[in-house]
Each structure stands twice: as C-alpha cells, then as structure tokens.
Design a protein around this nucleic acid. Structure first.
Lengths: 338, 338
DNA sequence: CTAATCCGCACAATCGTTTGAGCAAAAATA
DNA sequence: TATTTTTGCTCAAACGATTGTGCGGATTAG
C-alpha cells in the first residue's frame, strides 16, 4: 500500500499541511510543536513513507534533474564525460537524463525538446552542428544551460572547453620540434568549434615554422572510419607525410589500422600524435603520444557552473578554456638528424 | 508565457476537457466534432503548446521513463551497454535515467530508491553485490525489472546475460588446444554471477583436460589495477604460467601493462586471452584474442523484455543466456610442438 | 481585567493534467 | 408529435504534494 500525506493524515489525525511541514523539515518555521513533530516523524518512518516526487515537481516546478546532451556516447571521450557529469550531479542530489544526438541535428532538436518538456532544472550540452539558435532559444526560456566541449562563437552561452587552439599548436609544434615538415592533419566534424580551433592551431604552428605551404588537412568526422579512410589516402600520397596529427581518439584508432594494414611501422616509418587521452593508448605498441583533454575537470566545472546558474536563477555567461596536456610517448620519431 | 490547457481553454472558449481530448488524439473516442478538433489543433500549434509532462505523470501514474543501473560506467563494457539501452529506449519513446553504483552496494541502494521515488516505469539493472533481496523487493512492488549481465541464482527475476560458463570453457579450451597446461585465470568481482560462471567454465575445461591440479585463480575486482597487480604476482611464480585468461577487458589491460613492464613479449613469452570485445583490442600489438560478449544484442533484448513487462503490467520471468563469441587474434601461441 | 501577542495547527487554493459521468440540443425513430 | 438515440461538449473529481492565510485558545503585557 502506497503511503501519502493523506493516509498519514488520516491515521494520525493531523492535517496534511502539518504532516507536510514536519516531513519537509519546516516544523520550526511553522511552529509545529516538538511533540507533534516527533510523533509524525516516527509514524512516517514506521510506514516507510517517501514523498511522491512527481507531485513535488508539479507543485514546486523543480525536478532536481539535469539533462545531459552528448553528440555520441559511443565515443569514449563523451562516455567518460557523461559518466563524470552523472556522478558529480548525483553528489549534489541531482538526477541526470542522458541523451545522445548521434551527431544528428534532428535528433538533437527532438531530444532537447524532450528534456525541456520534462522540465529539467538545467542542461549540459555538447552540441552538434553549427547553428546556435536552438540553444539561444533555450537560454531565452531561462533554462540554465552550460555547453561543454563544443560551443558557438559570439554567443552568450556559458561553456567550458579545452583550449583547442593551444592543443593544435602544441601538438603540431611537438612534431615540428622532431624535425617533421610534412605533417598531415586529419580533422573531425568541420563545423564544430573544437575542430576549427585545433585546425587553426595546426595552421598557425606551421605558419610560424614557415611550413604553411605543406599543410594537409583532410577528413570530416570524429569517427574510426574517417580516420581509417583518410589515412589510407594519405599513405598513398607522394611524398608521403612523415607525421599525422589525428584530431580525436577515434580518428587515431582508424589511422592506426590503416598504418598497420600498409605494413608500416610507428614511429620508424611514420609518426603520429592524437587528440584525447584514453588509457588504452598506453597499451598500444608503441604507446601513442597525445594531447589529453582534462575531461574530468571540464565535466566537474560544467556541473558546478550549471549549479550556480540554477541557484542564482539566471544564466551567467562564464566561458572557460582549460589547457590540454601533452602526453609524450613513443609514437613520434625525431627525424631532424636525417 | 507558458501555455497550458487552461490558457487555451480560456482563449478558445472550449473546456479544458475538450482541449485535452483533442490534443491527446481522443477526439473520435469522445465524439468531438471535426471542426472543433481542427480548430483546437491549429490553435495549439500556433501557440506552440506542449503538455506539462510532470502533470501527466502525476495524473496517469506513468512516466515513460526507465532507470538504468550500471555498476561502473567507467568500464567501456558497461558504457556501451548503457549507450545501447538509451538509444533503444529512446526509439520506443522512453527516456532513460542512468545511475552508476560504482560497485558499491550502498550507492546501489540509494540510487535504486531514487529511481523508484521518481516513479520510473521500469528498471534495467546490472546489480553489484550478491544479495538479491533489494531486487526481489522491487519485483514485489510490481515494478518491471530486468537484470542484465549479472543476475542471482534461484531468483525469479528476468535477466539477459552471456553464457559465461560457455565463455569460460571455450576460452580455456582455446588455450589448451594451443598446448598450454599452465593457465592462470584472473577473475573479477568474486560474488558476481558472470565471474562465478566464467571461473566454473575455466575449471571444467581444465578438469576435462586432466589439468585441474594446475588451476590458478587469482584476483577479485574488474579493474585495471587488479589485472596489473595479479599479473605482476603471476609473473613471479615458478613455474611461470604460459598463458593468462583475463576475465574482463579492464583486467586484460592491467595484465598487458604488467607483462610489458616485465619486458615480456606476447605471445612468445606468454599467451593471453581476455573477456569482452573492445575495438581497441584489435589495435594493440599483437591484437588480443578474446571472448566477446554480445553487448548490443543483450542490451536490445533487455529493453524489449522490459517493454513487454511494462505493457503486460506484470513481471514475466524470462531468463536468457546468449552465446559469447571467440574472437581469435594473435595473442595466443601454439606451444604444443615444444 | 482587558488587550495584545504568540502558539499550534487547519483550510483551501494551486500546480496541469486525465477521465467517468452527465447534460442539453439535435437527429432519428415511432 | 412524442420518444428515443445520438451528437458534442462540460462538470468536477481526482493525482499528491506545497503554501499563504486564518483562527481559536493560551500566554503575556499593560
């Protein structure tokens, strides 16, 4: 039998109001006597009462729920991100609803509508596509919103992301320092901000080194398939690039497959550096050098930002860029001595 | 301005009841005229009405939401599982709430309570611990429940899992076929059913081959750390095992690290086969042989089972075991010729 | 001894839906 | 024309909580 305020009220003789106030810890505020208070608490415990959250939500217009929109949970990078967000939100008594747009704007729109209809208290989103209007509308509806990883230029929406430009520069520089002059870059979703910035960083590093004419930018998707295909094509070029900069972990995996199939050796025949830090990269042969993004930190910050928005009941506009970290392993060969 | 049935009612002059019936597609059933119907629909579209789901939930006692309890979303195996469940539920108009027990029974209890309080329509759970009472209580509350991956012996709760016993047998046999007689097994959470079954399969295969006295079973956690530590210890044994059977992908990664640190070569110095099928295993050197679990199929089946329970409003007791698949790569050496 | 204050609690409206029952007018039947 | 049936819609009660206001009685102040 499901207990409600009404059943307890009938059983104890106190009004629903009183029961509610006691059980929500407002006895003092509404001057309920100690005796009554304890009595009701004991009774509630005895019958194992737990409030109907749906009813609370309806009445208070608060759900203690946040929406988490990811572009592809299949990507370990976003899977980890979602996982940290869930845990972090949970610490703060928030429940998470995770949705996956699968990099499809239609899905994204539908799913966001679902979140809003479900009256989430706030949304953390890694958007897909390059159209900010959907998110600006959300902002206008006064729904707390924090973007993560991806964001829109010139928009007044809070976000936390990696300094992808810096990542692009440093990754490329690392290859240049090792004597590489013929560096190909395999990019992901072209219209996503992180991708644009990484590519810009790559170009800038080449430019500074006077290598801008050697730039090779290929690819269009953050997927294994894309990394595989583009690498196949790259390996057929003459002259063959001496190094590949893969702009995501998935692309990197695809590249590795292509390189292996070509019977080439890393780093002797070709060097590679990838974006993202996945633990298994250390177990590959050789371990892969990479630009790690501070996923955990970003996720935690995003939750924190969102909480601040929710509590202050207004959308702040805090835009954060965290530095990536170069993790140097053995997939880059120094060819400057040649 | 937020539109509700009331505002539309006031604006059009029709009663809330009529509006509600039209908008929920019950015009025929309740004999609302075509004209009225269309008028209301148009009006609703114009003002961009969307129903308050919370109010619907409260009234109908249905939330179109399922709870997904995972023991560790950090584990790629469960991350993929969660991802497929979310997508599959989404196809059927269900929203998922994912929670992570982090292999902690206290968390599990609290999180399950949250799910129930939020009135999810059903739960898909990969439980941690070995105590079924929590789940049997859920079953008694008439909440549709399907276990996935892990289950409890002798319990009448639906589940879908891999035939882990078979996986244990076949994995071990594969090593035996290749001439290995000294096979160590690194297990995960001892009280989880999949682990028990895998170990039982391992033992049985050894027994059939007359090798039961050579059995070495170590470890106690599905984690990289555990795989790493136990492998370190195994490598110090004399005689050193010629093969390792790792009972999860995480354990496998840890084992690889230890083997590499010891300066040993796979498969020349030691053979290894792991449970779980992660794409990156093909990119390791050498690619790792493994017992793949049909994660996607299991997840889809679990959702389907759950939906059937929800629709039939009773907990069926369907218990399914899907066969694992041996994925043969290059991490096992045939030493029978020696 | 009267007026003001405080204590302890209850009334009733509200959140936005859904739904069984009912009611007047129109249409069909007798 | 009188009766029945059908049509087209509305009433009002839920669902289970929260919350501003109010109301008697006890206590204190004047």
């Amino acid at each position: 039998m499901k207990e409600t305020l009404t059943t307890i009220s009938e059983r104890t003789g106190f009004s629903i109001t009183t029961i509610s106030r006691v059980l929500s810890g407002k006895s003092k505020k509404y001057r309920i006597s100690e005796k009554t208070s304890e009595f009701i608490l004991k009774e509630a415990k005895k019958c194992n009462y737990s409030p109907n959250i749906i009813a609370q939500n309806l009445r208070t217009n608060k759900t203690d729920t946040i929406g988490v929109l990811m572009p592809s949970v299949a990507n370990p990078y976003f899977a980890e991100m979602a996982s940290v967000i869930i845990a972090e939100a949970n610490c703060r008594k928030y429940t998470s609803i995770v949705i996956d747009s699968m990099e499809d704007e239609e899905n994204q729109k539908k799913n966001l509508a679902t979140l809003i209809a479900r009256k989430v208290d706030g949304i953390i989103a890694a958007p897909c596509g390059s159209d900010p209007t959907l998110f600006e509308e959300i902002q206008k509806m006064q729904i707390p919103l924090v973007l993560i990883d991806r964001f829109f230029a010139g928009s007044h929406i809070s976000y936390v992301t990696t300094n992808n430009y810096l990542g692009g520069v440093e990754g490329t520089n690392m290859l240049i320092r090792n004597g590489h002059k013929n560096i190909a870059c395999i990019q992901g979703a072209k219209n996503s901000m992180p991708n644009k910035k990484r590519v810009a960083g790559y170009m800038e590093a080449l430019r500074v080194a006077g290598l801008q004419d050697n730039a090779i930018i290929v690819g269009d998707e953050f997927s294994i398939q894309n990394g595989y295909m583009e690498t196949k094509l790259l390996l057929g070029r003459k002259p063959r690039p001496t190094a590949i900069f893969s702009l995501s972990n998935t692309i990197g995996l695809g590249a590795l497959k292509a390189i292996r199939e070509a019977g080439l050796n890393i780093p002797d025949d070709i060097s590679i550096i990838s974006f993202d830090n996945n633990i298994y990269m250390d177990y590959l042969t050789p371990p892969i050098s990479r630009m790690g993004q501070p996923v955990e930190e970003m996720a935690k910050l995003a939750v924190r930002l969102l909480m601040e928005c929710i509590e202050s009941k207004r959308n702040l506009c805090t835009q954060l860029e965290l530095s990536p970290e170069l993790i140097s392993r053995d997939s880059v060969k120094n060819i400057s001595s040649i």
